[in-house]
Design a protein around this nucleic acid. Structure first.
Lengths: 339, 339
DNA sequence: TTGAGGTTTTGAGACGATTCAAAAGAATCT
DNA sequence: AGATTCTTTTGAATCGTCTCAAAACCTCAA
């Protein structure tokens, strides 16, 4: 592994290391002849800048960490792509980490990123009020919470999940459903809690006419949705909800699969609405209604806030940006039901 | 940003920096009393190891780069998860980069990773015979090609795409199809070329009885599949293929959507088979037949090879691992057709 | 020829952690 | 007490790059 360094380049070009560094960083202050000589030496040796040493010297890196709840969920991939597109413009690298909903993994990733002295971290926290995050921030790593409102000690971007849940609930009730299921993940996850609170609010607003059944799976995945779907399908028709609001589209897809394996028709026997409006929702066996979030925009805004904080740490004021969700009605909940 | 360093810890604990380093790396050689004192100082100061400095000193990092063709394609996410699970066990970090099929982006990512002096790179190359990769390897960064066979200058893991194409073709022909379309991406992509060669072989083996129509989209995405689907749907029924083999499941989903918008039934009017067998394939509007690849295994094997090379660079012999694809038949191609 | 003013180039410190030969300290034995 | 061995601790050197004050070099004018 013959990695050349600046010194070897300097030797070959018969200049000092300082000059090589100048050629690399401020070529305009170096005389053309010298510059040329240095470039030649670089090419001949196959010299590649050592970003690690630069970073050590500079004290800060051009890398941002993004820790998401589930890389297998296209929602987060889209958020990541949004973040990356902005990062690209600021020649900054985004490293994507997957906590997979596990606080242990999340913490290991955060530790690792802090040790790498990344410029900042965007994170979709597994749990609310994570003291680790507070300490991380206190020690000096800027953090932006994604898809989760902050406490004021950092910036955040989020979508109003409560409103989203409410819209979903109102939609189902409006279509005539009177027994509705909520299929969620661990209630310790903020998104789950809020979306549940939203639909609960809509149900309450209906004044006792509507019944809400809350189901919880260990993870917000296709498998999790399938498990809940099985449970719901097993109920006698008279007790079974006529509609389900799933905490995300992955779960909705699993739920839909469970309906299919039990011979229940969607939306005739049971309507489904998901959350996130990932691209696959529209392509599902029964096209899924969903609550749409501005996915890329979340990522873009998050990194914007981070870059802003990094650029001017002094006069930076933490902000909480909140977007509004939209209802997208497709076949899975399109039918009107006579109670 | 008050980041503490080892010196401050040493001062507070009244020991030398060497001792602090020992406490961190070989605690057993430090006397319990001193060790305790140092730990206390670390906690009190909120000291966090600077991985950048460690790395500079050590000369090698504990990070592996993974450059994939398309993060939005769950196939690559699964490959990444496979790689990460192995990396985790070797406390190594995987940074995921997306070339999005763009050679420029790919090169920028490779440059960046080389500058970071990563331990090695796993890459699904955009183009075959990339001279950049050769140089990268020559300069000393170990590279493992993923989903693309190597020339011998590096390791590789791949699935026999030609065989996969052949299996898909044979399956469609066996079901009675005589006019078959191939929906692919840029033929410069190895996977596309091989899968096409595979089905072309199957068609040739049928001895002139079967006709193959080859369509190419600019990208192997849902949108790409949709475009080709539109084109196919627009053909008069007599000329229209009765089956399509899509170069991956994303394209197959797009193709399927196009059929739906044109009122063509799948599989009655047109059968579809995809490639990769991503989880969403089974959940599609019409469950998709597909050629399954061992996704996680690809990732796991790739990083195994890399770690092996890094551990023993001297006696390492490059290897090309090739897996076999499987046919998974679902509704989208299940029907038998009378020619 | 000397000096002023401008342009290039130089090279000695950082940056933070690790290593390792050598020094210091403790413990054991004669 | 002195010699010997074993255990701890020390601190200077190192990794590769950047910065910046100082040195070196030019050009032009007096």
């Amino acid at each position: 592994m013959a990695t050349r360094n600046i010194k070897e380049v300097a030797q070959l070009a018969r200049v000092s290391v300082g000059t090589v560094s100048n050629v690399l960083n401020r070529p305009e202050i170096v005389s053309p002849a010298t510059r040329e000589r240095v470039f030649e030496a670089i090419k001949k040796l196959g010299f590649v800048r050592n970003e690690v040493a630069r970073h050590l010297r500079a004290g800060r890196s051009r890398t941002v960490g993004l820790v998401v709840l589930d890389v297998a969920n296209p929602f987060f991939v889209d958020v990541a792509q949004g973040a990356e597109s902005v990062a690209d413009e600021h020649d900054t690298m985004v490293v994507l980490c997957n906590s997979a909903g596990d606080p242990g993994r999340e913490r290991r990733h955060l530790d690792q990123l802090e040790q790498q002295r990344v410029m900042g971290i965007l994170v979709t926290p597994v749990e609310m009020d994570n003291p680790w995050l507070e300490e991380l921030v206190a020690r000096g790593t800027p953090v932006v919470l994604v898809d989760s409102p902050a406490t004021g000690r950092q910036c955040s971007v989020a979508v109003d999940d409560r409103l989203g849940g409410q819209i979903a609930g109102a939609h189902l009730i409006e279509r005539g459903h009177r027994r509705v299921a909520f299929a969620g993940g661990p209630p310790s996850i903020k998104q789950v809690a809020d979306r549940h609170a939203g639909i609960a609010g809509a149900v309450a607003a209906a004044g006792g006419a509507v019944e809400l059944m809350t189901c919880t799976a260990p993870s917000m995945t296709v498998a999790g949705g399938r498990i809940i779907g099985e449970r719901v399908a097993a109920l006698p028709p008279g007790e079974r909800p006529t509609a389900a609001f799933c905490a995300n589209d992955m779960m909705a897809l699993g739920f839909l699969q469970a309906m299919a394996t039990h011979g229940l028709r969607v939306p005739e026997d049971l309507a489904i609405i998901g959350y996130d409006d990932i691209d696959f929702a529209a392509a599902a066996a029964v096209p899924l209604s969903s609550i749409r979030q501005p996915r890329e925009l979340l990522g873009r805004t998050a990194i914007d806030l981070l870059l802003e904080e990094v650029a001017e740490p002094e006069q930076h004021r933490h902000r909480q940006v909140i977007f509004q969700p939209d209802l997208v009605v497709r076949k899975s909940s399109a039918m009107r039901r006579d109670p």
